[in-house]
Amino acid sequence: MSSTLSPVPPATVPAGLSRLLRDARALLGRDQHAAGLILERATRLLEPQPPRPAPLLPAPLLPAAVPGGLAGWQVARLTRHVEAGLGGPLLLKELAGVARLSTGHFARAFKQSFGITAHAYVMQQRMARAKRLMLETEAPLCQIALLCGMADQPHFSRVFRRLEGSTPMAWRRRQRATRG
């Protein structure tokens, strides 16, 4: 019996999985804890997905009813794409491609449907993921920053403070004290 693995057809691999695995391999020799967190994320992408709770920023129920907004299929594809890609860069041009629109039309339609710009939405989703990681793991803030697609910990701290009103460390301590 052969021990070689057969390749998985690309259409069945969730978006971003190969990037996660490359990142984990790169970190394995330097930071096993961060590599482990990334591998946990990759494993979750491969497991059957239970019904998901509503996102922190719910998509409009009837996006087609909003004049000039995105269609329902575009909203669904974009929210899935953003969630899968939070660990890396998410450019406006890329998001517009997912929605199959020009960048200008996409930017207007996105704001019409979500009430905020695409960049603001991505940053809010990054901070929501960071909060989950801060509550569910013991990972250092520098690793959480990288797992959430931030350039580094100082960038993460500046954005977190601007959106949440406190530093990530202060927020984490406060949350742990109230759950304690």
Rank of each mutant, 00 (worst) to 15 (best):
T79L: 03
Q124A: 07
G104E: 14
Q112K: 15
P14K: 07
M134G: 02
Q49Y: 01
F114Q: 03
A34P: 00
R25C: 12
E138Y: 06
Q125W: 00
P168R: 05
L92P: 06
S2A: 10
P14E: 10
V13M: 13
V159Q: 14
Y121N: 01
P7Y: 07
T12Y: 11
G16L: 13
M127L: 15
V98F: 06
P67C: 10
L61N: 05
T103H: 10
I144H: 03
Q32C: 01
E40G: 08
S18N: 15
S2H: 14
A24R: 07
T117L: 03
L62A: 15
A64E: 15
D23W: 10
V75W: 03
L92A: 10
A42T: 04
M127A: 14
L101K: 09
G97K: 10
A26N: 13
A11K: 13
H81Q: 14
G104D: 11
I38K: 09
A54K: 03
P140C: 09
G97F: 06
A109E: 06
L27S: 12
A177D: 11
L147R: 12
F110Y: 08
L21P: 08
Q124K: 08
R30V: 12
A170N: 05
A109P: 08
G36A: 07
L27Y: 07
R158M: 06
G97I: 06
M169T: 13
L101Y: 05
G104L: 08
L91G: 12
F110R: 03
K131W: 00
D152S: 13
P89N: 08
A54D: 04
P51Y: 02
S2Q: 10
F156E: 00
T79D: 05
A177K: 15
H81A: 12
V122I: 08
T178Q: 15
M123L: 11
T43Y: 13
E164A: 05
P63V: 06
R158F: 04
R173H: 13
A24I: 07
G85S: 14
S102H: 14
L61T: 12
K111P: 03
L37R: 11
R162Y: 06
I38H: 04
Q32F: 04
G88Y: 09
A96I: 04
G149W: 01
R22V: 12
E164D: 02
Q49C: 09
I144P: 04
L91T: 13
V66C: 09
E136F: 01
A139H: 02
W171Q: 06
A109V: 07
F160V: 02
V8Y: 11
